[in-house]
Simulated scan of single mutants.
Amino acid sequence: MTTRRTVRSAALAAVVAAAALSLTGFQSGGASGADRDGAGVRTVAAHHVTASTASTASSASARKASPVRTQKLADGSKAEIYELGAQHYLAKIISRGDVLATLETNDRDAGLDANDMFVVLTLDGQVHSWMGGGHQGPGTFKLAGGWTAKVTKVGELRYRAQILGHGGAVYGTLEANEQDAGVDANGVYIVLSAGGVISAHM
C-alpha cells in the first residue's frame, strides 16, 4: 500500500497543464434526459492544471482565500475546494500535508486520472472521485449511465473518445491531448487520460 501511494504521488506530481475537450449534448449541472437524447445540444470544454502550472493569479487567490469546504477523496486523500469566481473553482488534492495536484475550472469542467483514482471538478465546484473501472483504449467500452465510448488513438499521448448513445448516435467527443480531460455528462462523470484510459462513474 505504501509503494502504491508513492507511485500515485509521483504520477500526480508529473501531470501537466490544460486539456481540451469538445463534448456536444452534455452540460455540467445535470441536464435533463431529453438532452441525452439530442435536445439542447451544447458544446462544453474541460481541462485540469497541476500545482506547478496553475496560473499565478489563481494560486495567489487561493492562498489568500479559505476553502469553501474540504472533501475526502476515494483514495483517502482530500480536496480543498476554493471559489475564485462565477463557475471558477480550484481544488487542491492534498495527502499527508503535501499538495499533489490542483484542478481548476474556469467556464469548463476539469478532470484527472491520478494513477487509478479518477477525479472530476465541475463548474459548480463539486468534486467527484472514484477508484478503478478504467478501460484501456483503443477500443469500444460500455460506460456508466448507459453511454458507450469508442476510444481511438490519434497521436502520441493523444486519444479521442466518441460518446455514443442508444442506437450508436454520437452525442459528444472527449479529447485528451497530452493531458487528461474530464466532464460531468448529465450526472455521469467521465475521465479520459492522455494514455487512453477511460473511466466513468455515477
Rank of each mutant, 00 (worst) to 15 (best):
83 E>I: 08
91 A>Q: 00
89 Y>I: 01
133 G>W: 13
133 G>S: 12
83 E>G: 13
101 A>H: 12
104 E>Y: 01
97 G>F: 10
94 I>Q: 12
108 R>A: 14
133 G>M: 07
110 A>P: 01
142 K>R: 05
110 A>M: 03
123 L>V: 13
116 D>W: 10
105 T>L: 10
130 W>P: 03
132 G>Q: 13
135 H>V: 05
79 A>T: 08
127 V>I: 09
82 Y>H: 14
134 G>Y: 13
95 S>H: 11
138 P>S: 04
131 M>K: 14
86 A>P: 15
111 G>R: 02
133 G>E: 11
111 G>Y: 00
144 A>Y: 13
103 L>I: 06
86 A>C: 12
139 G>T: 03
120 V>D: 03
114 A>Q: 04
100 L>H: 05
105 T>H: 04
87 Q>K: 15
118 F>G: 02
85 G>S: 12
85 G>N: 09
131 M>Q: 12
129 S>H: 05
118 F>A: 11
90 L>A: 09
84 L>N: 13
99 V>L: 00
96 R>M: 06
135 H>W: 09
137 G>C: 14
113 D>W: 06
134 G>M: 09
79 A>G: 04
104 E>Q: 11
102 T>Y: 03
107 D>F: 14
96 R>W: 09
109 D>E: 03
94 I>R: 14
138 P>G: 10
126 Q>N: 05
107 D>A: 15
86 A>H: 15
131 M>V: 15
119 V>T: 08
121 L>T: 00
102 T>S: 06
95 S>G: 06
127 V>G: 03
91 A>S: 02
123 L>G: 13
86 A>N: 15
98 D>N: 09
143 L>T: 02
114 A>N: 02
140 T>E: 10
88 H>T: 14
106 N>D: 07
142 K>Q: 14
132 G>L: 15
81 I>W: 05
112 L>F: 01
106 N>S: 03
116 D>L: 09
113 D>F: 03
124 D>N: 15
87 Q>H: 14
143 L>F: 07
109 D>R: 09
91 A>N: 00
89 Y>E: 01
79 A>D: 09
138 P>R: 08
84 L>V: 15
